[in-house]
Structures are given as C-alpha cells and as structure tokens.
Design a protein around this nucleic acid. Structure first.
Length: 884
RNA sequence: GGGCGCGUAACUCAGCGGGAGAGUGCUACCUUCACACGGUAGAAGUCGUUGGUUCAAACCCAAUCGCGCCUACCA
C-alpha cells in the first residue's frame, strides 16, 4: 500500500461543495429500491419570502441526520424538499418593492403583479435551494415541489371541491380577524396577542325618556357608532327595571335598547356592556342571539366609514378615538378614563392591530375533522416527541373554530368558485367552467379571493407525492415516517395536515412528530433582524463548515429545550471535525509498505476486542437515540467513541505496532486501524457527513460510497464485556500513575521506575503483564514491574492505591512530601466519608429488608473497596511521614 | 383566568429514585515525529427555596420564589 496524504490542515471548503456535487451526480439522495419499509420525511417548506435562518438550519440538520441514518440502515429513504408560496408574506415583499418605486399593486393590475411575484419567488427559491445544498441536506431534489406548482395546485383544487361536495365549505358574512394594512382576513391562529397598555373609558348613555343615564365602559370608544344595544345580566337585580328601555347613543341621533344577556359579567365595571356586533367577537355572538343586527363602522382600510357621523369619517381608529373622547368629554358624557392593560390581536405578518371585521368570507367546517384527528391521537397513531406537545395538540382540537380560508390577496390559489352573472348559480369545479351548467350562460365570474396558504400546505405530505393521483410514490412512501418541525406551527400546520390526511386519505400523514426547540441567542432572546442578534447559517458554514454546524446543532438538540447559541458555539463541532481529520491523516500517512491482511485471519488482542466492543456499544447508543429522537445522545455517543476511545486509547496503543520493526506486526495493526477507521466513518456519517465521506473515499480498504454503505449495528460476536473490564483496569492504572507524575511535578522527559503489586487472583494481573509495555509507554516509565508474588523491594518508593493492586513509583527525591501528605489526607477523608455513607446503609435494617438484592450487593462491594482504599491510604501516609 | 416548560460547576446544557456529568471557560505542565481546533493532570456544584413520600430524592409529591412560552370573549 502507498501512504495517502491528506492536507495538513482541515479545511471544509476544500471538499464540502465537491462532495455534495458528487452525491448529486451519482443520485445518492434518491431512494433505493428495496423490500424494507421505507423511511419518508417531508421537509417543512420554507417560505419563498426570505432566506433560511438558524431555525431552518436546525430542523433541516436533524432531518438530514435521520435521513442519512435510515438510508444507511438499508431502508428505501426519501426526503422531499420544497418551498411554500406564503401568500401574505410574499405579497408583502413585492408590495414593499413596488412602494419603493412609488406604485401600488392596483396600479399594476393582478396579472402583472403576479408576474413580479413569480420573479421574487424564483429568486428566493434559488437562494433557499443553494442554502440547503450548502448545509448538506441529502434531500431528493428530483422530488422537489412548490405549493403553487401545477400538481399541488391540482391537489388544492381537488381538496376544495371535495370538501365543498361534503358540505364542509361555506361562505357567509361573519366577523373575522382582519388586517387593515394587509387588507385581508386572517384565521384565528394567525392573530398574535400582545399586551397593550390602553385606557378604559366610562361613558354615559342617557335614557331617551330623560330619566337619567347609565354608564358603560369601553376600550374602544370609536366603535360606539356601531352600538346596537346595551346589555346587562338577566339576573342582575340592579338593572331588571331598565331592561327594554331606550337609550340615546351619544354623538348620534340613534336610539338603542337595553337588553338582557347572560354573557355579561355582573362583577366587571358597572355590569353594563355596550353591544357592537360588527367589531367585537363577544358582541357578535350576543347580537346573533338577540337578533340585533350589526352596523359596520369601518372601511376595508381600517378608517371610519359612512355609517359614522360625518366629522369622524375617514379617520384612522386612533385619530377617531381621540376625537370621540374629546367630544364626549365636551358634551359631558365622559365619566372617567382609567389606565387599562389588555391583550390586543396583532397581525402575525405585519404586526398591525387586527380589527374584528364584518365581511363575506369562505370557511371550512372543522369540528368533524378535528374529532377524527383527536381520535387518531387517542388511538396512538401519532406520537409527539417530546410528549408534552400532545397537550397543545389536544387543547387546540378540542377548542376548534371554523377555519376562515379566504384571503383578499392576489398571490395564492384562487378560490375555484364561479358565479353566473345571469342566473346567479354558484359553480364549484375541478376544471375551469366555460359556461353555466344551469342557464348555459358564458358570463361567469370567478371569486377574486385566494385561499389561505395553509390550505395548500396542509396537503403537503401527500400532495408532494402526487395526490390526488394514486402514484407509485404515494403508494410507496405514504404515510410518511417522521415530521420535524417547530412548536410555533403545531396549530397552523401539524394538526391541519393530520386532519386533511384523515379526511382525504383516511390515515395519518406521519407516525412521529419531532418538535424542535427554537434557536435563540445566548441571552435567550429570539433571533431577529431588528435585534441584530441573528446568525446566518451560511456564515457559520463559511467560518466552520457544514459538518461543524450540523454536529454542534445535533449535540445541543435536547428534547424540549430551546437552543441558546452564538457563533462561538460552533467551535465545538469544528474541533471535533478537526480531530477526525487529523486522526485519519495520521493513519493514512502510515500505510506505506504495508499489506492489507484478511481481517478474519487476525487474532484480536484484548485492546482490539475492547475497541470493537466500544464500537458495538456506540452503534447501539445511536440506534436507541435515533429511535427516540435523542439527537444529542447520538451525537455524544459518536463523539465519545471516536475521541475518547478510538483516538485517546486505541490509536495511542496502536502506535507501538505501527512503529514496529516487523512488517507482519505492522500489517496487522494497519489492517485493524483501517477497518476501525472505516467503521468510525460509517458510525459518524449522519452527524458529520462531508468529512467522513471525504476520508472514506481515500481509504484503501473500502470501495463503496459512504453515504449508502451500511450503518454499524450491535453484533453479538463483537461483544467483549470481559475485555472491556480489563481495559478499564489499565485505564485506571495509567490515569493513577499519570496523576502521580503530574501531582508530584515530575517532568515529562524524566522516566520513572514503577512496580505494580497485585495478587495472582486479581482479575487484571495477567493482563497487566501482557500489556506491560503499553502501560509503561503510557505513563513514561523506564521500567515497569508487575509483581504478583510480593517479592519486589519497594522501600522508599511512592505508593498509590488502585482497585485490586498497588502501585509504587520510585521518585522519592522529586516529591514534596508535605504537599503530598495533604493531598492524600484529603483523599482519605473523602474515602472515609463515602465509607460512612455505605456503612450507614448497610447497618440499616430497613435498607437490607426493602432494597433490591443487587443494590445491597453493590453497597457491600463498595464497602470492601473503600475499606481497602482507606487501609492503603493510611499506610501510605504513614510511609510518607516516615520519610520526613 | 387556564395550561406548559425551565431553574444542576463561571457559561451552555445532559442526567430524572441507589456513589454529582459533558462541552466551553479556568489552573498547572507539555510545542513528544496526526491534531496547541492538541496532550496530560487539576480546581470548581448545600442540583432555586421549604416541607413531605421513601430504607434511599437532583430525580417522585406539595407548597413557594424567579424566568420563559402558549392559550383565553372580561367590555
């Protein structure tokens, strides 16, 4: 074999792009055909409004880890990428652009505006795709979809028509959440509640018959022009006499009645509420119950309309409020104004204040679907990780509202409903109609509103696979396996996908739902543009590499926890990658002249068996971690194995053989090291994908591609618990002797002489003899004697106590006796305290009677251990004292 | 108002019934021929507080304090 030379410095820029291209070229992200059950993930489609942030980097990194892991287990694996048209958000972006040019979308017209929007979509899509490539996502780009592409539009159309046919879609005039700035209705869950400090005004409404007045309280005086009544509680004895009387509505010439309705809280304020059905959800319900009608006082842009007295028309709510309060005050209607803080709805896209607004909208009846979705969860068909998110899911579904799906926007799926201008027939069709089926007129007009973005994304797990066609993809890969997403869209998306899937396909869209934490800065603040604390995934990749980013994120992705990071955090993954690089570099540079042996003919030493055992355990840990979505456990398992076991102990111990004179010895070591290196790459690949593939390609002992090779699994014939125990003895002894060196300040170049006394019966005794040279090199000993028959003279040597053996270091002249005695006394004290604890337990009859047998045995073993330690410690201290 | 989550080493977090852990940072020594993005050794925590359950509690229960998030029609 020839030596392979890796560049001295680990530089991910050298190979990450190249490797990604090679994977793409070789079609490595496409699902392999096979009999095993497929593993499918659909990527939560990023919005085409912007570029990816750390949250995307996190959830795509985790999806990539799952995908790569399951691909390597041999399952046909498909990860479907795609993007979302994000109606409101994208339209906003384009409108902002237009505003800079001084034009409104209306100036452009619907068609031209949509052209511009498609351009923006293309641009952002390309950026997003290149970002996903840059961070190494192994999604199958040949399956990429967009929520407004032809197939998905067909799916949207089909689902709308089906729901309509099933009587689950209706149109009507209702009070909806309306964003005056966006000019559109929003769904309930698109409203964000924010705390606002406002005022509560008490206003007098005089009785029309001049018999005095009543007082009502309001936070929104400007909507009083829409008042249709004042309500009191029917059981409120203070007011029974006035129910039915008329009031003069101040600032207007309208009269409104006093009515009784049980929704009124008698204890709040005066116990009287003015009823404004067109501008308050409560009042809307009350108005419906009492048949009061509703007076809308707002224009679509949020200003006051012609239903208000002339002087207030076209004013913004804020201005109108000020003026109304002023006027009420001047006319003596205002009793008082007190500070009042309350929750006010804001638009989740533009953060303007949401107005409850009376308008004609399309709705989906949700109750039936919600019940099914709830039942599917109760039947255990879906599982959330972590489990506590199931509460959120349950709570939302149990309090489901009908879903307002019409948006007064241009960018989106146009509602497939036409009205015949001649006979008013309403046509809902899968294919655009050319004439009215009833009167044959061609004078048809399509609904101008578009559908809520989520009306296309709720179909995502199956529309991306070809639904409504019964495609091979759909048959093979649906239902999908796992959904990875953030908790902020459990309502918007996760639960709706489950409902849609049950409604249209009769089964759940995925079995497991992994909810990631949010990525925040080190102060725990959400990353945002305005705070300037955001991290750009591309910058992280540029600085540390995609492997470092993915590894760090996975290492920090503990279930149910937000992830607090800054750019420095990624050093962790970077250091790990660097370690991998250098370990590989070292092994590969030492191949010169060696011959690869047949692995099956090699007889394994204890150290060899130990490392294979550790590899076994690591593979097992990763398996359990993946199955339970404990990404941090998986990352830690591969980290510990590679760094602490393989590099720190195995490679170090193998150096002896690597530098051996005899070629056979060297061949043996090289063969084993290469085999372990290849296995390590496989083990680590899901977590650090690029570097492992780069190294794997250079290994002389393998010829396949790492990304599609087999993931290590726990092998019974590679389990060596006995050897694991022996090596842990060596590790303990070495650490003990090294710490003596260090504590005593013995310089590195000074070789020490060591005697280890142990009984022949001690389980490690023969192993100590066998690995004497190794131990000697590890502790820097010129001579290391294993004395099993207590014949070695250790007079004047410095003693150390191990488990089952005793070490002696001949360095008397180098010791600071006083300091060392102090240290030993501290140790002794610790041991004595531990022993006390153990003895207390063992003398406790309750413990002996109630504790499990193994717990008692463990305590007894501990007692023996501590007693020995104390005994030796006391001897050592006495010995050192005698030197003084 | 209801619900959920979190308070463990200086920092970020694992552990969630039987001897307090990791990474970073810190201290000392080492540029030894893979790696100073390294090696070796080390210091560092009454596991928020108070009660309770238990033979045994960081871990279970209750209360309490602090922080965060979600949800809700109190005008």
């Amino acid at each position: 074999m020839k030596a392979v030379e890796l560049p001295k410095a680990y530089d991910p820029k050298d190979f990450e792009d190249r490797i990604y291209e090679a994977w793409m070229k070789d079609g490595m992200f496409k699902p392999i055909k096979g009999d095993a059950s497929p593993f499918t993930v659909v990527m939560p489609p990023p919005n085409v409004t912007g570029i990816l942030h750390m949250g995307h980097a996190l959830n795509n990194s985790l999806q990539d880890i799952l995908t790569r892991y399951y691909r390597m287990t041999g399952r046909p694996t498909l990860w479907v990428p795609g993007t979302d048209h994000a109606g409101i958000a994208t339209q906003h972006v384009v409108e902002r652009q237009l505003a800079k040019e001084g034009i409104r979308r209306q100036d452009l017209g619907r068609e031209k505006f949509l052209e511009r929007t498609w351009e923006v979509k293309e641009k952002h899509h390309d950026i997003i795709k290149s970002q996903l490539e840059k961070i190494g996502c192994s999604c199958d780009w040949s399956h990429e979809r967009f929520t407004m592409d032809e197939g998905l539009s067909q799916a949207v159309r089909e689902s709308f028509v089906r729901l309509y046919e099933r009587g689950l879609i209706y149109k009507g005039e209702y009070l909806v959440n309306y964003c005056p700035k966006c000019g559109t209705a929003l769904a309930d869950d698109e409203v964000e509640h924010q705390h606002l400090d406002g005022s509560l005004w008490d206003i007098r409404y005089p009785f029309s018959d001049g018999s005095g007045f009543i007082t009502v309280a309001t936070t929104r005086p400007e909507t009083m022009f829409g008042d249709v009544a004042v309500a009191v509680h029917p059981d409120d004895e203070r007011y029974t006499a006035i129910v039915g009387k008329l009031l003069d509505l101040p600032l207007t010439d309208r009269k409104i009645p006093v009515i009784a309705d049980s929704f009124v809280d008698m204890a709040f304020g005066t116990g009287m509420v003015k009823i404004t059905p067109a501008h308050d959800p409560n009042d809307w319900q009350c108005g419906k119950r009492q048949n009061l009608g509703a007076i809308n006082v707002l224009n679509p842009d949020g200003t006051l309309n012609d239903n208000c007295p002339e002087k207030y028309r076209n004013l913004s709510p804020v201005d109108a409020r000020r003026l109304v309060v002023e006027d009420l005050k001047a006319l003596g209607f205002l009793v008082k104004e007190v500070a009042h803080s309350h929750e006010v709805g804001h638009c989740y896209r533009c953060h303007s204040i949401i107005e409850p607004y009376l308008s004609n909208q399309w709705f989906v009846r949700m109750q039936g679907m919600a019940d099914k979705a709830l039942q599917a969860w109760k039947d255990g068909k879906i599982t959330f990780f972590p489990k506590h998110w199931e509460n959120t899911y349950e709570h939302w579904l149990e309090n489901i509202h009908d879903w307002c799906i019409s948006r007064q926007l241009w960018w989106g799926h146009r509602i497939p409903v036409w009205e015949c201008k001649d006979c008013s027939e309403q046509i809902v069709a899968r294919v655009d109609p050319t004439h009215c089926p009833k009167c044959n007129s061609t004078n048809l007009q399509q609904e101008t509103d578009v559908l809520d973005t989520w009306f296309s994304s709720w179909l995502w797990p199956f529309s991306t696979l070809g639904w409504p066609e019964n495609t091979e993809d759909l048959k093979t890969f649906f239902p999908t396996s796992t959904l990875v997403t953030g908790y902020d869209i459990i309502f918007f998306w996760v639960s709706r996908m489950i409902m849609a899937s049950l409604e249209f396909l009769g089964e759940v869209p995925f079995k497991d739902i992994y909810i990631t934490g949010l990525v925040r800065d080190k102060q725990g603040r959400k990353m945002s543009k305005s705070l300037g604390n955001g991290l750009d995934p591309l910058e992280v990749v540029d600085q540390y590499g995609a492997d470092a980013m993915k590894f760090t994120l996975s290492y920090m992705a503990t279930q149910g926890q937000d992830i607090l990071i800054d750019i420095e955090s990624f050093k962790m993954g970077s250091r790990f990658a660097n370690k991998i690089w250098n370990a590989a570099r070292f092994l590969l540079m030492n191949l010169e002249g060696s011959t690869l042996l047949d692995l099956s003919t090699i007889e394994l030493s204890t150290m060899d068996k130990w490392i294979y055992n550790q590899l076994n355990l690591a593979a097992q840990k990763v398996k359990v971690a993946m199955e339970n979505y404990k990404f941090n456990d998986g990352a830690q398992a591969v980290y510990d194995f590679f760094w602490n076991d393989f590099c720190d102990w195995y490679v170090e111990s193998a150096k002896q053989g690597l530098y051996a004179e005899q070629q056979e010895k060297k061949d043996r070591v090289v063969t084993l090291l290469l085999d372990l290196l290849a296995s390590s790459m496989r083990l680590m690949h899901p977590f650090v994908s690029f570097i492992t593939e780069e190294i794997y390609q250079k290994l002389p002992n393998v010829s396949d591609s790492l990304i599609t090779s087999s993931y290590p699994v726990f092998q019974e014939d590679r389990a060596y618990p006995q050897e694991a125990l022996l090596v842990s003895r060596i590790q303990e002894a070495v650490t003990l002797l090294r710490s003596v060196r260090s504590e005593l300040g013995i310089s590195v170049d000074k070789k020490i002489r060591v005697v280890i006394k142990c009984d022949k019966a001690f389980v490690g005794s023969s192993f100590f003899v066998e690995e004497r040279d190794l131990m000697a090199s590890f502790v820097g000993a010129s001579e290391l004697i294993i004395d099993t028959d207590d014949t070695a003279d250790v007079t004047g040597a410095f003693p150390v106590a191990g488990t089952g053996y005793e070490g002696f270091v001949f360095v008397r002249e180098a010791i600071d006796l006083e300091k060392e005695i102090t240290r030993l006394e501290k140790d002794l004290d610790k041991s004595q305290k531990s022993l006390e604890g153990v003895l207390k337990k063992l003398s406790n009859e309750q413990f002996l009677a109630n504790a499990k047998g193994e717990a008692v045995e463990k305590e007894q073993a501990k007692r023996a251990e501590f007693e020995e330690k104390i005994d030796k410690g006391e001897k050592h201290i006495a010995l050192l004292r005698s030197f003084l």
